[in-house]
């Protein structure tokens, strides 16, 4: 049905779409290697690679076989639904754990609240993988050796946090 209208440019159209998808996926892989932290890596991993996969599926529509086209439409629909959900779950996990932002100039405002609550003595810059892991480590150590106070602690650790 489709090949009759396309004439003999069908294989060239498939070539073009495959090369386009390869280029987009290469950009995604470069992004996930070069980006500094998980928040910025998520852009490359979830959007660029998914777009390259969609380009491949559009290339396989040119094959003009019904069993391939139906399955490809099903796969692209499933990917279109599940990829944003998976990316959102990873982003939520990173936000709960207060994962470090290593991008230059990035400010993690959710850590200010922890500093106000005296769970954190200073804003971490380049240590460890996440602030949540640092706080867990700190609580374990304080259970072992008594309370661990930082220099600015006032003794009223249970005070209310006013935003």
């Amino acid at each position: 049905m489709l090949n009759d209208r396309l004439g003999n440019i069908g294989p060239y159209l498939a070539d073009t779409l495959v090369v386009l998808g390869i280029i987009i996926m290469t950009l995604g892989v470069i992004g996930i290697v070069r980006m500094p932290d998980v928040y910025t890596k998520m852009h490359a991993a979830s959007k660029a690679v998914f777009l390259g996969t969609i380009s491949f599926t559009m290339a396989s529509i040119v094959t003009n076989e019904w069993e391939i086209i139906a399955r490809v439409i099903l796969i692209s629909g499933i990917l279109m639904v599940t990829t944003p959900i998976a990316s959102q779950v990873i982003a939520r996990a990173a936000a709960i754990e207060h994962e470090l932002m290593r991008t230059p100039g990035a400010v993690d405002e959710s850590v200010y609240d922890l500093v106000l609550r005296d769970e954190l003595a200073y804003l971490p810059v380049e240590r460890g993988e996440s602030v949540g892991a640092m706080i867990r480590d700190r609580k374990q150590r304080s259970e072992l050796n008594g309370p661990l106070r930082h220099p600015h602690a006032t003794g009223k650790e249970d005070r209310e946090v006013t935003p």
Binding site: D37, A45, S46, I90, A94, E99, E129
Partner: peptide, 10 residues
Amino acid sequence: SSLTRVLALD
């Protein structure tokens, strides 16, 4: 970090 690992496996 382990979340980066999960992202790269995806």
